[in-house]
């Protein structure tokens, strides 16, 4: 493979966490990157048609994005991401992602499915990227330099997230640092924590624009990505004897632990996807934790490919009203 080929990266799943890294990396070694467009109804429908009916919504969506991309690029980047921090792994569906795509869709361009498993030694991540580089004939030094640049990009991105930006805005700022000013979310007197997987929360199509809706209702939002990872790493696991071993679930549970104890948010929402395996546990653990912190209202929102705009809006409005009224009552009592 050479450098003139276009590399396709589906804008789902890990996109929200690592795209800035990948983009910087591939730009540096001179590979052109294309991404799938934002989720639309037609992408969702394609995914639903191609993926197994029993799969969870995000995986169906991944299939849809691959269908959207497959004719726009010469090869696809679907790394087999097993473990990145040496401690927690990704959902087994991530582990089998390249195989599922390769063996169930037709007419798919070649897939770069390098395995990344940080548990296999300190240098395993760099090695994985050297392997990725070699697909494009990039030499060792170029790859190492690109790898460093990519880290810097990711650091910047994460810093923006910590300031309270959501991933899409943060990526936009990184792309055009000049003509876009850093607009921090306005402070409001209601603050909700939204827990869940980044690829569900930030995809405004499958989350039925949850973040947008909250914003419109004057609620500011905090997600696990906005919390400093060091703070998170220190948290206990809501009274469980060991951590959850899936990265995103672990983060969400730790965030729940932190938020419920800190008490700086007015409510906690958990966004969960229909048919998600890890969530069946995670949601229960968060719910049990919420039971012990009655002063912070908690609600679970489940999304699937049929989630309707109207139903979601009504539920959210009712919940926000309830929280508002509660807050007023509490403050008048205090006075």
């Amino acid at each position: 493979m050479d450098l003139n080929k276009k590399l396709g990266i589906p804008s789902v799943l890990l996109y929200y966490i690592y795209f800035p890294f990948w983009l910087a990396f591939f730009n540096e070694i001179g590979v052109q990157v294309v991404t799938s467009s934002n989720t639309t109804k037609s992408i969702m429908d394609k995914g639903v048609r191609e993926a197994l009916a029993d799969a969870c919504v995000p995986i169906k969506l991944f299939f849809g994005h691959v269908m959207d991309l497959k004719n726009k690029c010469d090869c696809l980047f679907i790394p087999r991401v097993v473990c990145l921090n040496g401690k927690t792994i990704y959902c087994p569906k991530f582990l089998g992602l390249p195989d599922m795509i390769r063996h169930s869709l037709d007419g798919i361009p070649p897939i770069i499915d390098v395995r990344i498993d940080a548990r296999q030694g300190r240098l395993s991540k760099i090695k994985a990227y050297l392997e990725i580089g070699s697909y494009f004939g990039a030499g060792r030094n170029i790859v190492l330099k690109a790898y460093c640049k990519a880290w810097i990009a990711l650091r910047r991105y994460n810093r923006l997230l910590r300031k309270g930006l959501n991933p899409l805005d943060a990526m936009e700022i990184i792309k055009n640092p000049k003509n876009k000013k850093l607009i921090l979310p306005a402070k409001s007197n209601l603050k909700f924590a939204v827990l869940g997987y980044p690829y569900a929360i930030y995809d405004s199509f499958i989350s039925v624009n949850l973040l947008g809706k909250l914003k419109k209702m004057g609620v500011s939002v905090l997600t696990a990505e906005n919390i400093n990872p060091l703070t998170l790493a220190w948290q206990k696991n809501c009274g469980l004897p060991k951590r959850l071993f899936w990265t995103f679930s672990d983060a969400a549970l730790k965030a729940a632990h932190y938020l419920f104890r800190q008490g700086r948010v007015d409510a906690v929402l958990h966004l969960t996807a229909f048919g998600c395996g890890p969530d069946s546990l995670l949601n229960k653990f968060i719910e049990l934790e919420a039971k012990q912190h009655k002063e912070i209202p908690f609600m679970t929102l489940m999304i699937d490919e049929h989630t309707g705009e109207a139903g979601m809006a009504t539920r959210l409005e009712a919940f926000v009203d309830m929280v508002k009224r509660r807050k007023e009552v509490v403050s008048t009592c205090r006075n």
Binding site: A51, L52, D54, A55, C91, P92, K93, L95, G96, D99, M100, H103, S104, G277
Partner: peptide
């Protein structure tokens, strides 16, 4: 989860 992956293939 694992069997969904298997079933897809």
């Amino acid at each position: 989860i694992p069997e969904i992956v298997a079933r897809t293939i």
